[in-house]
Design a protein around this nucleic acid. Structure first.
Lengths: 344, 344
DNA sequence: CTGAAAGCGCTTACAG
DNA sequence: CTGAAAGCGCTTACAG
């Protein structure tokens, strides 16, 4: 908008009060929907607000009231569709509560994360939802406790002292391993990438436990690149293991999609020559051919949980730390087949 | 964090000043890096801030200074990876300017958008970046001009009175049509979906113009569903046109991916039996097989442009309305082939 | 139900 | 370079 005079001296509550012939306090009560004020007065004040084009000034209100109706959200990545969905879940419940989200991207760097947390504190957020960067230490949680600033961890569980919303990664791995085992697979690889953090560790541990409980060798953990094009190129890593796997479980669907492309390039038929299981069950799992069997983590729901956890803590700061861990479900589609065929 | 006493009476600037033996005004100058204060005094104040664990209170500052270091961002969709990338671009430059983004999702609904704009105004944002909901009217722009609140439109150009950052959709369509024409295609369909807005209209018009300039029939515009699974199922719509197309250009890559799946299901070979061009060039275009030829719109760059436009307007509100329209580039991969083969 | 007063934590002139 | 004062626009007791 091209408007020279930025500050158009907006109408203040006092202006409204004067126009409605009430005191400023009364006008304030009307705004906050207090039952103390009569219907006639209320509508008189509301009319005045309308006429003056009055807009509430949160900044001033918060200064006095110590509540900003604002929650900070810090994610390690914004371009990843998974985090976009998480964010959508958070935003929807924060919005429904009449609050607004202050968004920032830590790029999975602890020092940036520190800067951001401080910035959010300066902006007076009522609480913070953070998917902590890999390598986050206890200091983060201590500092926020010190500030008395409520925090909920999402997806990555670093501290038992703070609320947590996430998903049962280990359970998801178990579902994948169980399913593949039921198809006769024993030589199952786990394709991973990215920085090491609790959600990573839980998946690896879950894989190991599940494999061991079936009596399978759990050592085929292969690290692949982060970009999808390079993952496809790195597909041969799967066949450079001590034993050739008949199935591979992926750390996430990005890897699964990348490997699917690489397998296609090598003429290896997914579901027949090699079985593939993704993790997260993003929308593209349904779009790819053969359709990708994947462990659903439902990021939108996790985001909603995280936001609810925070709202509840705001309402009652004395609550004990809680954790909300969703169950995964295995979404079986077409990317897996019996191992028997392969051993022929 | 489990901390009963939320408000831990944080240290104030006055506390810092007292501890450093200076006046509050001086402390304020130190914070804002004024050159007026001497090095010795400065470090004394800084030490005091450190010792007291002082945190700047933006809310109080903004009340006085009329600047919140905050920009509102309203998008019509958060789960779509395209908008996630746009958002990433915006966030990065806003962050680099030491400001923070207030995020909200209009769900492409004008009334929600109105609510959000007002909410952001209440929160005292310095400006707003919005991808206006389909059906947005001039009122939005008038209201913001009235408020003296800077606004930049992104991706969808509704008003000539406000700044705009976007991409040359029509040019992108032309690149796609030219390319397909060079391969001998004449019966080219355009698969679209979603609400009608300027970015939609520009694409349709661009398609028509480009087709006409080649002397082709531009009437094969087919609407498909919005969800990827249903798009795949709707693939037959392509073959219910007056003439069977030999190529199809897609409104975006979501459609392209969906149709690719549907074509696969029908045993139609992409690039040989039918050529396919996407729009946006999302990362999955590279992961799919055959790799998807797509028009790159580079959403991250558009987001950066939008944020820069806003920052520049903030610095100089007297600027004339500007538009920053990026050029697209056609990323040729494997999903198109010569039309000659098909006519055999 | 309503009014007058004080104060939230800063910044902004204005003197010195 | 530094201090004392006023004020940003609200909310919060406290009286009436």
């Amino acid at each position: 908008m091209v408007s020279g005079d930025r500050k158009k001296s907006r109408a203040t509550l006092l202006d409204v009060a004067r126009r409605a012939n009430v005191s400023r306090a009364t006008a304030s009560l009307v705004i906050r929907n207090s039952p103390l004020v009569g219907a006639a007065t209320r509508s008189r004040v509301e009319a005045a607000m309308e006429e003056l084009g009055y807009v509430y000034n949160m900044g001033a209100a918060r200064l006095r009231a110590e509540r900003s109706q604002t929650v900070g959200v810090i994610v390690p990545n914004l371009t990843n569709p998974f985090f976009a969905e998480l964010l959508a879940g958070i935003e929807s419940v924060v919005d429904a509560a009449g609050m607004v989200v202050l968004l920032a991207n830590s790029a999975d760097q602890v020092d940036r994360q520190n800067t951001l947390v401080r910035r959010m504190r300066e902006h007076g957020v009522d609480g913070i939802i953070v998917c902590p960067a890999a390598g986050t230490g206890v200091e983060l949680f201590e500092r926020l406790a010190d500030w008395g600033l409520p925090l909920v961890q999402v997806l990555r569980h670093f501290s038992a002292q703070a609320d947590y919303a996430g998903v049962d990664y280990a359970g998801g791995m178990r579902q994948a391993v169980d399913y593949l085992s039921s198809l006769g697979h024993e030589r199952i690889a786990f394709a991973v990438h990215g920085p090491v953090h609790p959600a990573y560790q839980e998946r690896v541990d879950g894989f190991r436990d599940a494999m061991c409980s079936h009596g399978h060798d759990a050592s085929m953990i292969v690290r692949v690149p982060s970009k999808i094009a390079q993952i496809a190129e790195a597909t041969q890593l799967l066949f450079e293991q001590k034993a050739e796997p008949t199935a591979v479980i992926c750390f996430n669907d990005v890897i699964a999609l990348g490997l699917a492309a690489g397998l296609y390039d090598r003429g290896i038929a997914i579901g027949r020559d090699l079985s593939l299981v993704g993790f997260d069950d993003v929308t593209d799992a349904e779009a790819v051919r053969p359709r990708l069997t994947s462990v659903s983590t439902m990021p939108v729901a996790i985001g909603e949980n995280a936001a609810r956890l925070l709202l509840e803590r705001l309402a009652d700061p004395a609550l004990q730390p809680r954790r909300l861990v969703n169950r995964t479900t295995l979404h079986v589609r077409q990317s897996c087949g019996p191992a028997a065929v392969l051993t022929l």
